[in-house]
Amino acid sequence: MIRWFMLAWQLAALCTAWGQECGACHRREADAAASSPMSHAIQRGGDSDTLKRNLDLSFRSGNFSYSIRRQDNQSIYSVTDGARSISAPIEWTFGAGIVAQTYVYRRGGDYYEAAVSFYPALKGLDWTPGHAGRVRRNVEEAAGRKLDMEARRCFSCHSTGAVWSGASVLESLTPGVQCAQCHIGAAQHAAAASRGAAARAAMPKLAAMETEELANLCGKCHPSWADIAANGPRGVPNVRYQFYRLANSRCYDAADTRIACTACHDVHGGLANESAAYDSKCQQCHSSANARAKICPVSTGNCITCHMPKVDLPELHYNFTDHQIRSVRAGDQYPN
């Protein structure tokens, strides 16, 4: 038992150190990553910026009333049907709060996903995806769904180096997507670098990966083309699965890195919100310098505003960018 805890402690300590150690040599990437949304993919309930800004949230459906209220340094999630109530401090917040933020609380040693999430577009609460149609016969069922094995999946993508003790994740995990989530062998590399022998523990160059290989790597957490193609959803709800949409584009080429995720997105930084920021990426292929490329007859800029239209997902109260790059014509049906 003692050996197990020693091992868990060492792993956790190593994980916390990764971000700092990597930054000693890779300052630009580490600084950018520290403020990126992926670094804030999970926060402790008490630390959540979203909850610090929203001190009193409420939602009502049928007989049940939901609230999240700030008390001292924590946010308390409560559900009541008028006769009975349950309350628990929010332990973890999932999501950086750009699209939504979902809450996890604990009861009787088990983790539960709260039935309501925060949506910035509403500046308030609504059903967590998948909860609207659930059976709610009492306050316990109304409050949320129990996460058992499922919790491990949630934490393994939203945090780095999660170590489990029975049904509980150790507090020493590093919140957010840190270097070691993608860079396999980062710990050995950092240890070797501290001895001045970084070259001896060189890591695989992710930048050298082909488009499809990269998609598989990111697909460890973001559902891949194959996940959605095989299991759905079909129609508009799949707009939030960018790999699936992108791979269905006519211009997608599994070997051409000009259409890889990293061709447009800086994974160490945040998302660029201005459409013009992506023009240069489109022009990598669609420019007069490329004789075989189709050139847009309408505009030379803001390509994505037409060719990657925004699609509203009412359930998530968010306009997602459709990554299926195409010529959109009025009256066209949403493809796939």
Partner: peptide, 28 residues
């Protein structure tokens, strides 16, 4: 769908593209 992934892993891009096209056709 899985066969497309397999072919890409085996660096058989043309076969992977063909399987992906079949998936698109079946989905449509």
């Amino acid at each position: 769908t899985s066969l497309a992934t397999v072919y890409y892993r085996l660096k058989r891009k043309e076969d992977g593209d063909r399987e992906r096209a079949i998936v698109r056709e079946l989905t449509a």
